[in-house]
Design a protein around this nucleic acid. Structure first.
Lengths: 166, 166
DNA sequence: TTGGAATGTCAACAAGGCTGACGTAAGTTC
DNA sequence: GAACTTACGTCAGCCTTGTTGACATTCCAA
């Protein structure tokens, strides 16, 4: 079991135990991944749903409600509840679409941007630390495996902004 | 901002855009990660909470309620709701501790094992596919980054069964 | 003009978190 | 042996975030 590598191709290490280890790694790491933003959000009476909305509005300013819906994969009723509080609290504003007036283009206000920054700063700090600890090689692999794990539709969303600036 | 790489050591690639890409990778990949079990669970009227419980009971048969509590990081009331249905449905059984009779050692029944297998088969299949697509190198890195992303306490849980067989 | 798309909204419900309070059995300590 | 603590369960109530179903409005497009 120790190192029965070198079998054929590169499928060697795919024992059930190895795979289970990967599964648990996802589980525990995701907890860490959300822990810092969660702490900030809790003090502000927001939840992860707000975080996600703010994140993607920041990523793609001017996106429409239905685009956001597709990214988040929730029902419009669910999203609307969240968006409403973000409007009310002045974190997000909606501008009527120029060509199609039915659309509501979503943008962060200054206040919304500030929250987004504080959340993503925290999350980036952890990500940065993990990257540093693991090294450049590892980061490549990390991204490759995660990308391969996505549903094709989500992979498209992920690559949407592509290497826009990455 | 474009490519101010090559700075010092290996921190070169840690632009905010790169980090954000990593953050989104986690988000979208986690969705894929849970998608297959979720589908199975839905048909059985169970949820992720049940999955998690079953997973860790399978991993460490005979663990106590408080150990499970520590791993899952939820309140006992919350866990109990889930455990109760698992008892009622005959998926999990509790045996009184030998040395300490206050403890309830948790075990999967045959039925519980069957569910666990069906869930983890699905999840492993996806993990296996992702690993294959990404290659051996990548898997190493994937695990390293995830591990570095965990809270120390969780990392201990993760390493608890350590390379028990991995 | 008519159908469908984009959006919002009301209502009701469920899962799965949480807190607080209380109870019981069984170890542990003095 | 009394008193404290631990392991666990339970009742009650609350919150967030997801769901379905139904219905209304506005506007684009054929």
């Amino acid at each position: 079991m120790t190192q029965n590598a070198g079998a054929s191709e590169g499928l060697l290490f795919l024992t059930d135990a190895q795979l289970r280890k990967g599964i648990e790694a996802m589980f525990f790491a995701y907890r860490g991944f959300t822990a810092d933003p969660d702490r900030i959000l809790a003090t502000l009476d927001y939840g992860r749903a707000h975080h996600r909305a703010v994140h993607f509005i920041n990523r793609s300013p001017g996106l429409t409600v239905s685009q956001l819906l597709a990214i988040l994969g929730v029902t419009k009723q669910s999203l609307n509840r969240v968006l409403r509080t973000l409007f009310e609290d002045g974190l997000v504003e909606a501008r009527v679409g120029k060509t199609d007036k039915r659309e509501r283009r979503l943008h962060l206000t200054e206040k919304g941007s500030a929250l987004e920054r504080s959340l993503s700063d925290a999350q980036r700090a952890r990500m940065r630390a993990a990257y540093r600890a693991a090294g450049p090689q590892a980061v490549q692999g990390f991204r490759m495996v995660l990308e391969a794990m996505m549903d094709p539709e989500m992979r498209r969303q992920y690559q949407g902004l592509k290497e826009g600036e990455a």
